[in-house]
């Protein structure tokens, strides 16, 4: 009974990613998209907190949004998987519910 969480906010201006990390349960997935993709980049103040969850959660980033913002795959935190919209849809389908951290 796992959940797909979505985060579309930059972690530097909003609490959505932190709150999502605080509430996601082991086995859940988090997809970062729109401005949420900044949470998937290495070397940021929140990167360690995100990386620390890569074992218990599945972490994804929407590639189109990351590319649009100049975040190359090589700059993604280890354990974050890029997906396209078809991948996003399949994540939503394969989890029991979505929880959208707006």
């Amino acid at each position: 009974m796992a959940t797909l969480h979505t985060v579309n906010k930059s972690p530097f201006g909003a609490s959505a990613l932190q709150s999502c990390l605080n509430h996601a349960k082991d086995g859940d997935a988090i997809l970062m998209f729109e401005d949420g993709v900044y949470g998937a980049a290495q070397g940021t103040i929140i990167a360690d907190a995100v990386a620390a969850k890569s074992g218990s959660l599945s972490l994804y980033v929407l590639k189109g949004d990351a590319d649009a913002r100049g975040i190359a795959d090589a700059r993604l935190i280890e354990g974050v998987t890029p997906v396209d919209y078809a991948g996003f849809v399949e994540l939503a389908a394969s989890h029991d519910r979505t929880n959208n951290w707006l």
Binding site: G64, D84, V89
Partner: peptide, 19 residues
């Protein structure tokens, strides 16, 4: 806001993938 674009891309991908 990007929301209506993202929603459109999601809906389109869902329909193209048999949903």
């Amino acid at each position: 806001h990007q929301a209506s674009d993202s929603a459109y891309n999601f809906a389109k991908a869902a329909l193209e993938n048999g949903h």
